[in-house]
Amino acid sequence: MASIMRRKPAPRRESSTPRASKGQVRRVSPLKPGLRNARNWATAHMRAATYSRRGALRMFSVIASFTLFILFSGLWLGGFLPDIRNNLDEYSRTRLIAMGFVVDHVDVVGEGRILENEVQAALGIRPGDYLFETDLRAAQQRVQSLPWVNDAMVRRLWPDRYVVHIIERRPMAMWQSEQQLRVIDTDGRIIEAALPEDFAALPRFIGAGASQNAKAFLVSMTSAPLISEQVDLIIRVGNRRWDLQLKDSGARILLPENGADKALLRLSKYHDSHRILDLDIETIDLRLPDRMIARPRQDAGSTVYVKRKGEAA
C-alpha cells in the first residue's frame, strides 16, 4: 500500500531574488550588456513614429544622421574627400564659365605716370580668365608694390570685369644723402622710379633725417613766402634744426630748433623794412629769440648787424 501511495513533491526552493510582480519594472543588472535597453529605446521610438508625425520625423532624422555619419566616416577613412572636393570645384568652375563669368575687361582708374599695361601685368589677370580664380588681396598687394603707387584698390564686378583704382605718389622734394640725389614723396619715402632731373623745380633737402621731417618744415615755410622763393638748399643740422641757403647770394640762414616759422616771419618783416637779404651777408643767425645777428662776408668788412627785440634798427 505504501508503494501505491504517491510521493509528496519536494518543496520548491525560494529564489533569493524577489520576482517582479505584474505591473512592476524589472531591474536589470548593471553587469549585463545594455542591448536590452537599446532594444527598448528603439521599440519605443518605433511605436512613437507609428502614432505621431513628430515621432516619425524624429525617427527619420536619427536614421539619416546615423547614415550620414557612417558615410562620411567611410569617405574620410578612405581618403576620398579631397577628390570629391576637387571634382565639385571643377564642376562649379565649368558651369560658371559656361554662364559667362570670364574676364573681358580690366579697367585702370587714376593712372598718370604709371602705365595701364604695367598695372595689368602686376595684377596678373588677362581677358578670358575665370572671374573668381584671382585672389583679390594678393592682386592688390602686387599693384601696391609698383614704384609710383601709393595706394590701390582692386574690385571684381560681375559678370566680366575687374576695376583697379590707383592713388599715385606725389613728388614733394628732392633729398641728397651720401652724394646721391633722390625724389621723395609727401611721406618722406624715396620714389625709386623718379628721375631727379625731371623734378629740378622741387625744394632740395640735405642731411640725415631731412626726408622724414621735410613735409612739416615746408608747411612752416609758408609763413614767409618771399624767403622760401629764394631758398636753394634746406639743410638738416644734427637732426635737430634747419639751415637755409639762398640761391643768389649764397647766404646761410640759421634757424632755431623750435619756432622756425616765427623766426622766418621775423626775418621776412625785417627784410621788408631794411632789405637785409640784399646785403653782402654770409650768415643770418635767428637761433636766439630776442635778437638777429647778421655776419657779412670777410671781404665785405667786419661789421656785425645786431637787432635786439624792441630796439630800433
Rank of each mutant, 00 (worst) to 15 (best):
S61G: 11
V62Q: 13
I63C: 15
A64N: 09
S65W: 07
S65M: 12
F69E: 14
F69K: 12
I70D: 05
I70Q: 05
F72T: 12
F72A: 13
S73A: 07
G74L: 15
G74Q: 13
F80K: 14
F80E: 12
P82V: 10
D83C: 05
I84A: 07
N86F: 14
N87K: 04
N87G: 09
E90M: 06
Y91C: 04
S92M: 09
L96K: 08
L96Y: 06
I97F: 03
A98C: 01
M99C: 10
G100K: 15
V102K: 09
V103A: 04
D104G: 11
V109T: 12
V109Y: 12
G112Q: 14
R113V: 10
V119S: 10
A122R: 01
L123C: 03
I125V: 15
I125Q: 00
R126V: 13
G128R: 06
G128K: 05
G128I: 03
L131D: 05
F132E: 02
T134F: 13
L136F: 14
R137K: 06
A138Q: 14
A138K: 09
A139S: 11
A139F: 09
R142G: 04
R142Q: 08
S145D: 15
L146P: 02
W148Y: 10
N150S: 11
A152W: 01
V154M: 02
V154D: 00
R156L: 13
L157G: 03
R161Y: 04
Y162P: 03
V163P: 05
V164M: 04
V164T: 06
H165Y: 08
I166Q: 01
E168L: 08
M172L: 15
M174A: 01
Q176V: 14
E178Q: 12
E178H: 10
R182Y: 01
I184V: 05
T186F: 05
T186D: 05
